[in-house]
Amino acid sequence: MFSILRTIWYVFLHSFRKRITVQYPDQKPYLAPRYRGRIILSRDPDGGERCVACNLCAVACPVGCIALQATEDENGRRYPEFFRINFSRCIFCGYCEEACPTYAIQLTPDFEIGEFHRKNLVYEKEDLLIDGQGKYPGYNFWRIAGVKIGGKDKGEAAHEDAPVDVHTLLP
């Protein structure tokens, strides 16, 4: 009996508490920088595409919403010919971002991508590609990787020694 009255009193005390509702359209909620929202493709500091079309994101995707086709430019740089994410399938798990070896694919704290037509949720490469570097500024895969491309021979990458001519090591 006493506990009933005490419950009523405690609930009444909630009249003086702060309300915890975030009034969303007027009042934007704080989203952490690592929030998993709309997916983007970033560029390296030189403005080139980071994506090397390795297909790891498409393989990691549990719902299979990523489709891409790899190709090579005249410098020997791999890049995706098309890159398509179907956001009506995407579950925003972030596995693609984890799988990406070049920090190209990233999830952003933007979730307001509602559409009236389902087909508008299929984002093409020009919708996904942004001009900036996203969460990892300064990272440039082609500078670090040892692979040879046009304008950068073997051994010219950052933190890389020139290749050793094994014939000089002969006794």
Partner: peptide, 8 residues
């Protein structure tokens, strides 16, 4: 009810 459940 909302007031007593800290809502609007």
């Amino acid at each position: 009810l909302a007031l007593w459940q800290d809502r609007y």
